[in-house]
Nucleic acid binder design. Structure first.
Lengths: 332, 332
DNA sequence: CCGATTTGAACAATCGTTTGTTCACGAGAG
DNA sequence: CTCTCGTGAACAAACGATTGTTCAAATCGG
């Protein structure tokens, strides 16, 4: 307690507070020294609750995350945590249960005023979420997706990443390139499909509907989607996610197609899984950690009244070449 | 604000507080109704900070987690979150950066008094951690490991899980069973090795040092460990973790050993990865969610002064049979 | 040497709740 | 009709920190 420090130093708590907080004030060097030593001796740390009440800010920010085990989010959290710490904020993570609505969660959490702002790494993206966000008492930013009418959002440049992946396949000589898409309703899935189509068109290739299958974000979906693509005899596949790619590997194996001998496979989002499967997957590495960082910095700027920036769309970091892609040598 | 509700209802804030908190008090039905309606109308929620200051408890518990993307921890978090919510506590997760010391982190976080207790899912287990925990101002419990001299800990019964895995391999007719161990210094790694040895001894089999390799918790470690085991020509492997098993699959593939045709593979800890690799892995499912739950319940009991229970050692939930194990038919 | 000014530090209010205590009023007992 | 008691609700003091204001002593100029 501050009062203990003050008593120990023989001063008023207000004086102790000014010294310890570094507030500009007229305090003699001796008094300052006595207070600092007393604080040291008593291992004083200001009670965050009392500070929060008096200052009307908690110096903490909350982050709502679905799927903590998704490497996209765990690296994003890393970036967010560093940025928060840098600015003197604590980052408190709240796990969104699979069934729970982000809208409800945000509203419920907001009511208690435990944090100064929210990082929303939303899985869903419905009108209910937008409404709920609009009623929040504190600033917020949205991660991992663009959203109209929010103060700030940080998203990945899915189209650029998809183009990078497809261009890599093109450079290896592939011409019949399939796409295992994510959810085509979703922001990320849609952007990746778009980039895939852009890359093909830029190369003067037609897009064939039978070369695209919606796979979602599960192993089963990837396996099923890959089975649907097989009849179109692609020589390479761009998968929208690692997990779908792992599912694709299973189907390819069952069908007796060798990777990368018979077909190349590239996936978006690098992560540990890329090295767990056989063959290890070539991927496009995305700046997920940086996404967490810029979102957090923007949120803190909002909290501290330094205004909003424009949405950040983060370019891919580059290709991670592994064993799942190879030049196309066959006659197609 | 409570004062707004009170004004709206034409009563004193103290009366409004008593009604809204459900405190036993002498309040006329009409007054009660007016207050409740006013609170409803103003969408009143008590300010958690002010409550925390007055009550000297935050009604939140913190959880320190290394490796958020590890399925062991994400499911543990799920269990902890449900238990916390059940008891009216918020669960705030803090991510421990790979380099950071749990001891420092715990001390630093504790100083701010933001939570009523800590769930420590420690990765390291040194004396420094024990010392740091001993100085915490609030109760704490340790997860995922046993530890002497702490108020409570919840751990997995690694030996029982290892026995279950090995007994499965024995029942399939395997006699030369190898073990890809975790860190042999660590609590979990040691327990698994012990169970492996117990199961072999119970079956009247000798334990051969050349059938055990320390693999750690990485793909590379698993691959390397598996390579070291190959000369001993095991017919089955019990891997201490999924990730090590994935590494083992790589080495086996490179050596031209078919799974499960030439060698069976079973791993501890079920998780999404088990289905991503080829072949899908037979695993021992562990009660990680329940571990989170019991740890949280015990912590809340400590917080609320209901005394400590004895450490919980949680038995495995069972085998998940997939394609990586098969009866041994060869002549060994 | 005295009044004006600066300096150093205490005083006191406040943040939003909760809760022990006081108080006014009406009803019941004698 | 008065005294006592019970009821319903207001009053007021905390919780621990921060910060505007006040105040006494020291310093300075003339």
């Amino acid at each position: 307690m501050l009062a203990d420090v003050a008593r120990e130093a023989g001063v008023d708590p207000s004086t102790a507070s000014r010294v310890l907080r570094g507030t500009v004030a007229r305090v003699s060097p001796e008094t300052r020294k006595r207070i600092e030593e007393a604080a040291q001796r008593l291992a004083y740390h200001a009670n965050a609750t009392a500070r929060a009440l008096r200052l009307a800010r908690t110096e903490a920010i909350g982050m709502v995350v679905p799927q903590l085990d998704n490497p996209v989010f765990s690296t994003t959290i890393g970036g967010a945590q560093r940025a928060a710490e840098e600015a003197g904020y604590a980052l408190l993570i709240v796990h969104q249960e699979p069934g729970a609505s982000t809208a409800d969660l945000a509203r419920r959490l907001d009511a208690s005023r435990r944090v100064d702002g929210w990082l929303i790494a939303a899985a869903d993206e419905d009108a209910a979420l937008r409404d709920a966000l609009a009623t929040l008492a504190v600033p917020y930013v949205v991660l991992n997706r663009q959203m109209q009418g929010v103060p700030f959002c940080a998203a990945l440049d899915n189209a650029a990443a998809a183009r990078m992946a497809v261009e890599h396949l093109l450079s290896l000589g592939h011409r019949r390139i399939g796409h295992l898409a994510g959810r085509l309703q979703g922001y990320n899935g849609m952007g990746r499909l778009l980039g895939y189509q852009q890359a093909l068109q830029a190369a003067g290739l037609a897009t064939h509907p039978e070369l695209v299958a919606e796979a979602g974000y599960t192993v089963g979906g990837g396996a099923e989607g890959m089975r649907r693509l097989l009849p179109a005899r692609p020589t390479a596949i761009f998968a929208a996610t690692l997990v779908a790619a792992a599912g694709a590997l299973r189907s390819l194996h069952e069908a007796g197609w060798g990777v990368p001998h018979d077909i190349s496979l590239i996936a978006m989002h690098d992560g540990p899984v890329a090295e767990l499967v056989h063959p290890p997957l070539t991927t496009v590495r995305m700046p997920t950690s940086r996404m967490g960082q810029v979102a957090t910095e923007a949120l803190i700027a909002l909290i501290e009244g330094r205004g909003a920036e424009r949405p950040a769309i983060l370019a891919p970091e580059g290709l991670i070449l592994r064993a799942s892609t190879a030049p196309w040598t066959g006659n197609d």
